[in-house]
Design a protein around this nucleic acid. Structure first.
Lengths: 205, 205
DNA sequence: TAGATTGTTAATCGATTAACAATC
DNA sequence: TAGATTGTTAATCGATTAACAATC
């Protein structure tokens, strides 16, 4: 353990460990080992132990890790032992699919509102939400204190909307548009463009 | 240049370079430099030059890279200078959104068919496609020679469907279900679970 | 030519792995 | 106790960066 800076690459693996542990918990398993967890997520046992031990001594020699305890620890480390409110920007097919997705709540997230600039869509339903006018987006996001957004607008609008989100106080953006966003250094972006992820694989085919 | 094995991490950056170059080309730009491209995608100029030079000498001293030429080279390297047929498994909100997504074709992909096991859905339309019976999935995918699939089924079915996809000859899977898939070593999986990607960011908030 | 920028080398930096004492 | 598995150290491995000769 230590208080030195934890590498980004370690952080990026924790949600994957957490996801695997939650599947184990659903199956009713009580404990696991670095060996078993590593095989499940495709990393070495040493890697698992090294990553986890950056944050504390969560295992026991001889028996391994208590699954529920490790889940609780990882949720705390990742700050998903609470619920983050989210906004969806863009009520196209992808935005509406995310608005209806049921998998957020038990992972630490909740959709609070969805915006679109198209007058035809404003006022319509998307899941349980009424599509809001994007013209009021900055104000509403700021008032609600929303820090997390999912961006599903067309490429041509993505950077402009991103600038507005930053202005509104959003700190984390899940970007579905196929474009690199330019943001200040304290803003985090994850890219969810399916074509780019597919292209990571075709090289090997 | 060389014929040694190219690191995976280099390959993983190429689609991102390609995406940025395509945005530049749309803007009518002719050339770029490692400096400029690096700023756009958030890596150092040295990194860009090193990555690209693994595959050949595509730049010119003094002037940089011709954008259209570099796009063509990257598309060839990534094998997206052709069209890969894809199947979507699972005609829920996400599957149907992907079926209607217009962004695949000019990135090297095309949806050919969508499957679901729900009798209520089979025969319905999803985008331009008629939802097919999942019971005939293995046979149809094999006959069509499809190598790429997008998986949008519930967690409980994801591993079983994956095993069938592997059996059907699929080599690359874009997985939207929040579960680690176990696959043979020659099968490639990319994970597109939104909650996991969101959790990569909350640590820093 | 002068300025700019590549491709590449060598140095640095950081991450992974192997090994093992500690201990449940 | 004997067996199993952690947390951690040190060694290895690999990736990034800085620097610069080559050259457009």
């Amino acid at each position: 353990m230590g208080t030195e800076k934890i590498p980004d690459i370690t952080i990026s693996r924790l949600p994957i460990y957490l996801r695997a542990l939650q599947r184990m918990a659903e199956k009713g398993l009580q404990t696991t080992s670095s060996q078993e967890l590593g095989e499940l997520v495709g990393v070495t046992a040493a890697q698992i132990r090294k990553d986890i031990s950056q944050f504390g001594e969560f295992g026991k020699q001889g028996t391994g890790y208590n699954i529920l305890f490790l889940i609780a620890q990882l949720r705390e480390i990742l700050k998903v032992n609470r619920i983050w409110d989210m906004a969806i920007i863009g009520a196209g097919d992808m935005g509406r699919a995310l608005a209806r997705y049921q998998g957020f709540l038990d992972r630490g997230f909740r959709v609070l509102t969805i915006f679109d600039k198209d007058a035809e869509k404003i006022g319509d339903k998307a899941g349980d939400f009424i599509i809001q006018d994007a013209a009021r987006m900055v104000k509403k996001i700021r008032q609600a204190g929303i820090k997390v957004a999912m961006l599903t607008v067309p490429v041509a609008e993505a950077q402009e909307v991103t600038d507005q989100l930053v202005q509104a106080g959003v700190k984390a953006i899940l970007n579905y548009a196929p474009i690199n966003l330019t943001v200040p250094p304290d803003i985090h972006v994850q890219y969810m463009d399916p074509a780019t992820h597919l292209q990571w694989m075709t090289y090997y085919l």
